[in-house]
Amino acid sequence: MSDEGGDSRQQYSDEEFLQAVRDRQPASTGEVADVVGCTRRNADYRLRRLRDEGAVDAKMVGNSLVWFPIEDQPNQQKDR
């Protein structure tokens, strides 16, 4: 079953992506994809959505984005 196209949220939960980032932080997109079991493209899309929602953040390390949870910081835009 493909995880691209349609609503990929049905196949993989946000929590799976968040847990992969927590477990591997700082986590590369490829590492998250491997842990979740999806394509790198799907992981990139989902991680960017989670960043837009305020659940994770990223920074460039060399030519790659690495992801980390921001839940440890108090009240990040969740109530805004």
Results as ranks from 00 to 15, higher is better:
residue 43 A to L: 02
residue 14 D to T: 00
residue 43 A to M: 02
residue 32 V to D: 12
residue 66 V to N: 13
residue 79 D to W: 15
residue 38 C to I: 11
residue 2 S to I: 10
residue 51 R to P: 05
residue 70 I to F: 02
residue 53 E to Q: 10
residue 24 R to M: 01
residue 56 V to N: 11
residue 71 E to K: 13
residue 69 P to W: 02
residue 10 Q to S: 00
residue 56 V to W: 03
residue 4 E to Q: 12
residue 17 F to Q: 13
residue 44 D to Q: 08
residue 14 D to C: 00
residue 1 M to F: 15
residue 15 E to Y: 06
residue 78 K to D: 13
residue 44 D to A: 08
residue 20 A to M: 06
residue 49 R to I: 00
residue 72 D to L: 01
residue 79 D to A: 14
residue 14 D to I: 00
residue 53 E to Y: 06
residue 60 M to F: 04
residue 36 V to P: 09
residue 40 R to C: 00
residue 9 R to W: 15
residue 66 V to M: 11
residue 17 F to G: 09
residue 34 D to C: 02
residue 20 A to L: 04
residue 79 D to S: 15
residue 15 E to R: 10
residue 15 E to G: 00
residue 68 F to L: 07
residue 65 L to V: 10
residue 34 D to S: 03
residue 37 G to Q: 09
residue 44 D to G: 05
residue 68 F to A: 07
residue 66 V to T: 15
residue 47 L to F: 06
residue 47 L to W: 02
residue 54 G to L: 10
residue 55 A to Q: 10
residue 56 V to G: 05
residue 53 E to K: 14
residue 35 V to C: 10
residue 13 S to A: 01
residue 2 S to A: 06
residue 20 A to N: 08
residue 29 T to V: 03
residue 14 D to S: 00
residue 1 M to Y: 14
residue 11 Q to W: 14
residue 6 G to R: 14
residue 44 D to N: 12
residue 24 R to F: 01
residue 16 E to F: 03
residue 12 Y to W: 15
residue 19 Q to A: 01
residue 14 D to R: 05
residue 64 S to F: 01
residue 18 L to Q: 08
residue 78 K to Y: 10
residue 39 T to S: 14
residue 30 G to K: 09
residue 13 S to I: 06
residue 36 V to H: 08
residue 73 Q to K: 14
residue 49 R to E: 10
residue 59 K to V: 13
residue 23 D to P: 03
residue 59 K to S: 11
residue 53 E to C: 01
residue 52 D to V: 03
residue 65 L to P: 13
residue 4 E to N: 08
residue 4 E to P: 02
residue 64 S to V: 04
residue 12 Y to A: 05
residue 48 R to H: 06
residue 8 S to G: 07
